[in-house]
């Protein structure tokens, strides 16, 4: 169980983007999170993955604080995969930075052996997003924060990506927080959906 207790944080002194946010994400659970642009969805997502220092409140994994060093068990996936990978590295090296997935798993994400020698700009956005998702599935990762990862993708690529991720998540009992605007998509994927407004969470029917 990943728990956030009463999180407050902001970028400028005196201005808080998140004000007392608490949420729980169980292993194997898919949770949806939406909100208007600027509501702090992405900030919350990144905070859960340890990218921000909290002003107050705490994050806990199974009742214990999250580790400060080593592989973070909560991984954040950004919207634009081009920014999530070093443009000077080949795909093989990009994957290996987190872990070395076996050929069978690479095949399931449609990442062929010949891709490993290519550079990010030689792949399309959808292809690169699959690389970023596979990279984040290192052993030891328990929760994924998917921040609008399919909003730039066409319907087929989007369906492929989510179906594959859903299969792997089920096998590994991963919890997934899906951040996005697309109500139909969130309805498909998530058991529970939350709405973020003015830095505070409310449940959505």
């Amino acid at each position: 169980m990943l728990e956030a207790h009463d999180i407050t944080l902001g970028y400028r002194p005196g201005v808080s983007v998140l004000r007392g946010v608490s949420l729980q994400l169980a292993a194997g659970e898919w949770l949806g999170l939406s909100g208007a642009s600027g509501s702090g969805k992405s900030t919350l997502g990144r905070a859960l993955a340890g990218h921000h220092t909290l002003r107050s409140g705490s994050l806990q994994l199974d009742g214990a604080p999250l580790p400060r060093h080593g592989l973070h068990p909560v991984q954040w996936l950004p919207q634009v995969p081009e920014l999530a990978v070093n443009p000077r590295w080949r795909i093989g090296r990009i994957l290996a930075e987190a872990w070395t997935p076996d050929a069978a798993l690479r095949q399931r994400f449609g990442i062929g052996d010949d891709w490993l020698e290519r550079y990010p700009h030689e792949l399309s956005g959808g292809e690169l997003q699959r690389v970023a998702v596979l990279r984040s599935l290192a052993p030891g990762v328990r929760y994924l924060i998917a921040d609008e990862i399919s909003s730039m993708l066409d319907a087929i690529t989007q369906a492929e990506l989510w179906q594959t991720l859903a299969e792997v998540a089920e096998q590994r009992d991963l919890g997934v927080l899906v951040i996005g605007h697309d109500r139909a998509l969130l309805k498909r994927l998530c058991q529970r959906r939350l709405w973020l407004e003015n830095g505070q969470l409310c449940a959505e029917a």
Binding site: A155, I156, Q158, W162, A184, L185, R188
Partner: peptide, 20 residues
């Protein structure tokens, strides 16, 4: 057809490989 059917409010289906 595959593009249409892959929408989340339709089948959300991964199309058979030969179609794409």
């Amino acid at each position: 057809r595959a593009l249409w059917r892959a929408l989340p409010d339709n089948d959300f289906a991964r199309p058979p490989v030969h179609e794409v």
